[in-house]
Simulated scan of single mutants.
Amino acid sequence: MTKIKLCGLSRTEDIETVNELKPEYVGFVFAPESRRYVTPQTAAELRQLLSTEIQAVGVFVNESPKKITELLHSGIIGIIQLHGDEDEDYIRRLKQHTDKPIIKAFRVETENDIADAERCSADYILLDSGAGTGTVFDWKLLMNIRRPYFLAGGLSPDTVGKAVATLHPFAVDVSSGIETGGIKDKEKMAAFVAAVRKEERL
Rank of each mutant, 00 (worst) to 15 (best):
I79C: 02
R146K: 15
D158R: 09
V160Q: 00
I79V: 15
G130F: 03
M143Y: 12
G134I: 00
T159D: 00
T135Q: 14
L142N: 05
I80H: 12
Q96T: 14
R93E: 13
I114G: 07
A105V: 15
P101T: 04
L167N: 10
T166S: 08
R197K: 15
E109L: 07
E111C: 00
A152Y: 10
E86K: 09
V172H: 05
I183H: 15
R93S: 11
L82S: 00
R93H: 13
L94C: 07
T98E: 14
V196N: 03
I178D: 07
S176I: 05
G154P: 08
R92L: 13
R147P: 07
M189C: 10
K95Y: 10
I80L: 03
D89R: 08
I103M: 01
G181A: 06
A122D: 09
Y149I: 05
G132P: 06
D158V: 01
G132M: 06
L82W: 01
G181R: 11
N112A: 14
R146D: 10
K184E: 03
D128L: 11
D173W: 02
D138W: 01
L94D: 01
T135H: 14
D99N: 07
R107G: 04
S156D: 14
A105H: 03
I178W: 12
L142F: 05
E88Q: 12
K186S: 13
K184P: 14
Q96P: 00
D87M: 12
I178F: 12
G134M: 00
